[in-house]
Design a protein around this nucleic acid. Sequence first.
RNA 1: GCGCGGUUAGCUCAGUUGGUAGAGCAUCCCCUUGACGUGGGGAGGGUCAGAGGUUCGAGUCCUCUAUCGCGCACCA
Length: 709
Amino acid sequence: MPEKFLKPYDSAAAEPLIYQKWAESGYFAPENLPNLPDGSPRTEPYTIIMPPPNANGSLHAGHAVFVTIEDLLIRYNRMKGKKTLWLPGADHAGFETQVVYEKKLEKEGRTRFGMDPGVLRNEILQFTMANKSFMEGQMRQLGASCDWNREKFTLEPDVIRTVYDTFKKLYADGLVYRGKRIVNWCSKHQTSLSNLETERVSRTDPFYYFKYGPFTIGTVRPETKFADKYVVMHPDDVRYAQYKEGDKIEIEWINGPITATVIKDEASDPEMGSGVMTITPWHSGVDFDIAKRHNLGLEQIIDERGKLLPVAGEFAGMSIKEARPLIVEKLKSKGLLEKIDEKYVHEVPVCYKCGREIEPQVKEQWFVKIKSLAEPVIKAIEAGEVTFYPEHYKKILLNWLTNIEDWNISRQIIWGIPIPVWYKGSDIFVGENPPAGGAGEGWGRDPDTFDTWFSSGQWPFATLGFPDSQDYKTFYPTQVMETGGDLIFFWVSRMLMLGLYRTGKLPFNTVYLHGMVVAKDGTKMSKSKGNVISPLEMSEKYGTDALRMGLIIGNTPGTPTALYDDKIKAYKHFANKIWNITRFVLENTQGVTPNPVYNFNAADTDLLAEFILVAKDVTADIENYRFYLAGEKLYQYVWHRLADTILEESKTLFKGADEAAIQSRKQFLLYVLRTSLVLLHPFMPFITEEIWSSIQSGSMLIVEPWPNL
RNA sequence: GCGCGGUUAGCUCAGUUGGUAGAGCAUCCCCUUGACGUGGGGAGGGUCAGAGGUUCGAGUCCUCUAUCGCGCACCA
């Protein structure tokens, strides 16, 4: 028996060496995998495109979950004899990374505003690349058996080329347009945001009722009302039947007399307040739509920094917070304040990064006519072409796709893929370079970058070298997209839409969405709460195998998973158990040569049948994405059946004199140990490979065939 | 407003096509000197949120109620 089994398993020492062995074997790459047991080459592809982690920090528990689940699937399918590719990547993560970098700048007493864009871009690139290589090391530590030679970064030239081709095609097909529309504007980050990048928070604010000529209007935002010269009511509201569309009314307002125009529109809710409202089309989506329907003028009241413009008269230059009480005071002194409802509860949109209120602004930006892309995906999903784990995400996604709004893809940040568009007066040219003649002839480039999800949405085919490469032909469409449930709209939906649009095929037919990893008390892990569990620390402390089991067992798709020290510790104990089972078996089978076709006696035949049932069950569970059950069943069998019962019985048996029974049992123990290691490998790759190297010289467990049951 | 979930043992959660309620942790008792104390054996503990229905049979399917939560959405 090898000496090492006399000491406890030392995961920290063993793991890096095992990973190195795997890497050197070349088995991470599909073309290097050995032939099938019958000698034929592998043909059936199995592909997972890794969700590229944002290269702006270190790996967190969520990353560890996806690495564990995807690595499990990959190892399983590799052992099943598939031509297996797990393609890793790293994401520049546009706005996300820029926000992280801005915080770093802030700490250094600097700011991005006023910085030379080229210099800033370069700084962030260096920051990103440093994080990228750091995180790659961490993924190796977690045992990721991905093909590093095929790794992709989202800003590589061929990825950008694919993204530009898609944009050109969308433009040619009339599915992307430049429009002057209301966008979600964050006055801190100085960029527009998609609807998904805003959140809604409940606020209690005073709701003011003001006299507006003969009417009473209500508002929580008096600071937007300076230029309000349209008064809107529902066409069927009998209270205001005497007023006709287009009537002009002279009224006294904040900064003096104005002429108001009556507008009749169904957007006005007679139940709300007095049933009359004034509109501020530049700073409200509803108002903007009304203005558009009635062809009304637009005037900006609040600037991009959230300060009042000269139209506010004496309040110009003030922030909203400063100005609001002063404006109310002034209206009150003019006798125009009717009443205040102090307890008005409403929801306001805020920037998902800084929590500042979104200030809607009218901007000229690029929008995707997303309904046209959504429709074929809706049909495909309804036809059952995509399987979701958990199943109910199908309904959630369909609901979202059905109610989808045009997608704003321009961002006013530098960290991203520049939009390939040139302007000259009212002429638009779509291309990476200006039309012949060059920028010298008055063509100016669009200063914006793409929403990072616009490019990420093309990831499955962009990474594989669409449209001509051999990899694309071999590995697309991929088998499964495994990612966090929070990315269902941001990413999964866009991959489905853009993938189908560009390649004519859905990029994957199975979507597995894991739940968020939370602290033991069920709350979100956050640095400020100090309850963050670092997967890398856990891996160092208890071993990666223990961490992986802790992340798999009890983790049903779509449900938050609690991760805590004790849980991982329990699986370190399990690793120790496996180690000691091996020790017991090796001690008691010295001199016995495993015979793969041994005829067990009746008792051991029963044990074999029982084990085969477990193995079949585990296999079916993995095939059906029930990893949490598969892991638990293996744990139960190996510990509480094999170790607690079978090994204990064997002790008595071995002390007896029934040589035939002893021989049979020894053969059985060797068989069950070896096969258990195979079954456990996708879950606990390190310790199983380490043991395998001692009992089966010259072969590696990573490519050992999965038992054919 | 629209949509989606949860409610099972003290705690955290499983429960796959309907077939006598499970695990881990916690609690209590006992055992064990060599595979492993990172151990072993055992015990207590649940009218599966409530009501009704379908069924030979319901934690599982249907309806309603209660309650907690989540997502999406341009409500002045």
